[in-house]
Structure formats: C-alpha cells, structure tokens
C-alpha cells in the first residue's frame, strides 16, 4: 500500500503555541482514518493542513509522493476536499449547490453526475428547492454530494454528522463507506462519536493538545489501548 500523506515533523504554531505537533504520520491510500480527541486538540487544523488551506509553519507534508512546499498546486488542491460540520451552502438551488463543485473544477456539469448524486443522497425531489430552506440533515447531504461530485482522491470530514439525527447519520456513513469501497477514496474523519469511529474507521487516532497520542487499528485502539490517555478517552473520561 502506498501513502497518500506522509507528515515529517509537521508543526503549526502561532508564536510559541503549536496547535499541531506531529513528528510523523502516514495516511495510507484508500483507508478510512478516524480522528478523535477533545475540542481544541488541533484536529480541525490538521485537516486544514491536509486540505492545503494552510501551510504548516514547520515540517513537510508529502502528498502522493510529492513534497508540498508552500502553496500546493491547484491540481493537488483539487484532489482533496473537506465536508465541514456546518454545510456552507450557497443561496441557490440544491442542484446548483451540488453542481458548483464540478463548475469550479471546470468540468462538464451536464454529464448527469449532479442528478446521480442527488438521487444517491435522496435529494432528487429537492433539486430545485432553495438550499437555505433545508433541514440540517438535508443540508449536510447536499454538502457531501457537492464534495463527491468532483470525485476527489481524498475526502476530509470534519465532524460531518455532529448535528444530525440517527437517520441522516446512517445515510451519510453509508455513502462514505461505499465511496471508499468503490472508488478507493482515502477518507479522514474527525468525530466526537466514538461509536462512529468504530463503525467507519480502519484505523483510529487520538489527538490531544496537537499531538497524536495513539494511532492504531480501530479494533485494537478501542479494545486494547496502549496509552493511558487513550484508555481514559475510550472509557469516556474527560481529557485535559
């Protein structure tokens, strides 16, 4: 298996305070990596670095074998996309919101992909509805469709189901899983829901204060944590 990301001594600091401090990390191609940890642990910042929205203040990220120094190329950036906890939808129709992904990439928008994704996510009836009138679950489904319509190599999910009801959580997880299985998309998902990590992730990592405390196969992570902090987290104790 090749590595999608290799991080070497990556730190992202504001002055003296480093919100991400990862000496080494490898994200394997085609895996689903779960990231758990308390708020403020640097998980979201790490995702922004992996989406090349920010450049780490120290260290090097290698993406698909290419060292990314400074700004990533447009092609590299377009290989990766993020679905955030809050779906930022445009004041346009649902269909237009899904289409925008391909539009931005300059891809054909009349290839039926928009309609296909709308259908996959149960949004066909809402295609012409204004996106701002959707429920939280519907909106997040639109956000996921918008991300997947560009067929990214890497899908980053920042607490995508944090606000959703069980029905929508199940639907989104199903789509993510099949995307991973069918296209081999590498997926990194931040979640506060340890059960979600167990359901989705091949490997799970615990981040605390910018550091990766433990990263292991999901089964081992939950059943036999090596670090006391991991054990405490799995038990549901508060981590400080």
């Amino acid at each position: 298996m090749t590595a999608t990301y290799e991080l070497a001594d990556v730190r992202h600091c504001y002055g003296d305070r480093c919100v991400v401090d990862i000496p080494t990390l490898e994200v394997r191609s085609g895996e689903i990596l779960g990231l758990v940890g308390p708020s403020g642990a640097g998980k979201s910042t790490l995702l922004r670095l992996l989406n090349f929205l920010e450049t780490p203040t120290h260290g090097l990220i290698t993406y698909a074998g290419v060292e990314i120094g400074g700004d990533a190329s447009l092609a590299t950036r377009r290989d990766v996309t993020t679905v955030f906890q809050r779906p930022m939808l445009l004041r346009r129709s649902v269909a237009a919101n899904v289409r925008i992904g391909r539009k931005l990439h300059g891809l054909d928008t009349k290839d039926g992909s928009t309609e296909r994704w709308l259908e996959k996510l149960g949004l066909t009836d809402l295609a012409d509805a204004p996106a701002r009138t959707l429920s939280a679950g519907e909106a997040q489904r639109v956000a996921l469709a918008r991300a997947l319509v560009v067929e990214p190599s890497v899908l980053l999910l920042d607490e995508p189901t944090g606000n959703l009801d069980p029905y929508n959580v199940g639907l989104l997880e199903e789509i993510v899983r099949s995307e991973n299985a069918e296209r081999g998309t590498t997926i990194i998902v931040i979640t506060h829901d340890v059960f979600q990590a167990r359901r989705l992730a091949d490997r799970t990592g615990l981040m605390v204060s910018g550091r990766m405390v433990e990263l292991a196969a999901t089964e081992a992570f939950f059943s036999a944590p090596q670090q006391p902090q991991t054990a405490a987290f799995v038990r549901g104790d508060l981590l400080i």
Partner: peptide
Amino acid sequence: DPNLPVQMLSLGATRRQVATVTLLEAR
C-alpha cells in the same frame, strides 16, 4: 459568511473563483 471562502477553496476554487462566488452570494 466568512467560512464560505474556506469552503470554496476546499472545493478547489481559485482565488478569482472565490471572489466571484462570494460576490454572487452577496448579490
């Protein structure tokens, strides 16, 4: 919403595309 440009960048928008989308959003 200040998160819109970030979302658009994450969808692979160029700076110019971000500006265009934001302007349309602010229409």
